Computed example of a mutant assay.
Amino acid sequence: MSIESEHRGSDSPYVTRVWRGRASGAETMTSIATSNWELVFWEEDGVVHAGARGPETAASRAEVDGESDSFGITFAHGASMPHLPIAGIVDRGIESAHVSDGRFVLRGEAWHIPDFDNAEQFVQKLVRAGVLTRDPLVDDVVWGGAARVGSRSVQRRVATATGLTQGAIRQIDRARQAALLLAEGLAPLDVVHRLGFYDQPHLARALQRFIGRTATQLQRPQPTADPLSLLYKPEDPAAS
C-alpha cells in the first residue's frame, strides 16, 4: 500500500494540526494512539464522507480499501463540541449521515466542507456559532501548568474536554515522542532517560501498546511492514 501525507501546525488555539493524505491499494495500516480528537473528511471510490474521530488509547490495525483521499483537523486539548461529548467517541468515530454537494451536517446544520488551506477559517465559524468551545485550563495543565482550581475540578474538566485522564494523555504523548526519537536514531536507553521512563522494559511496553512497534522496528523499519498513521511531535503551546 502507498500512503502520501502532508501536515502543518496551526496558529489557532483550537487546532493543533491540519493534515491531508492519499492512500492507494487494499491493505492495512497501523493506527497509533493519539490523545486528540479530530474532524475528518475523506473521499473513497468517489463518495465523500465526513465524521468525528475520537482519541485512540492503543495502537490498532485499520483497513484501507481502494483509492482514498483524506483531510483532517486535529483539535487541541481543551477544544470540544458541547453537543458531542468526547468521552462517547474515545476509540471510535461517528460519521455524518448527510454529506452532499460539498456540505455536511454538524449539530443539525449544514456546513461547507473545509480544506487544507482554509481549516482555521472554518474553525472560527464553528466558534462564532457556538458549535466549538475551548477550556484553556485543560491545555495548560496537560503540559504541566499549575491550575488555580482544585485537583478534582481539574480532573473533571480535562475528562470532559478530552475524554481522557491527564495520566492517559501524558502516557500517549510520551510514547509518540519516544517513537520519533527512536526513528531519528536515538538509543533506547537515552530515550528512557530523556523522557522519564522507569527502564527499557517500561519503554518497550509503552511502544507496543501505543505505537504498535518495538524500538528495533522503529529504528530499522522494514519495507514490508504496515505503514503507520500520522506521527508528529506533540507541541507545547507555551513553547511557541
Rank of each mutant, 00 (worst) to 15 (best):
A62L: 13
P234G: 07
I169E: 03
R20A: 08
K125H: 13
S12F: 07
L231G: 06
A87F: 01
G163D: 07
R61F: 09
G72T: 07
P237D: 07
S229G: 15
H49M: 02
S12L: 08
V99W: 08
R205A: 13
Q124L: 09
L126R: 02
D226R: 08
T214L: 02
F197W: 09
S151T: 12
T57L: 05
A26I: 05
M1G: 15
G88W: 04
E184I: 01
A146T: 14
G93Q: 10
E235C: 02
R103M: 12
L182N: 05
A50D: 05
A159G: 10
W37D: 09
A175C: 04
L207A: 01
F41P: 03
V191Y: 02
F197S: 01
E184S: 12
W37L: 10
I169R: 02
R8I: 10
S60A: 13
G88Q: 13
A147S: 15
F122S: 06
P136E: 10
Q166F: 00
Y232F: 12
A168T: 15
S60M: 10
S151M: 06
Q166P: 00
T74L: 12
A215G: 14
A26D: 15
K233W: 14
D45F: 06
L195V: 06
G130F: 09
Q155C: 01
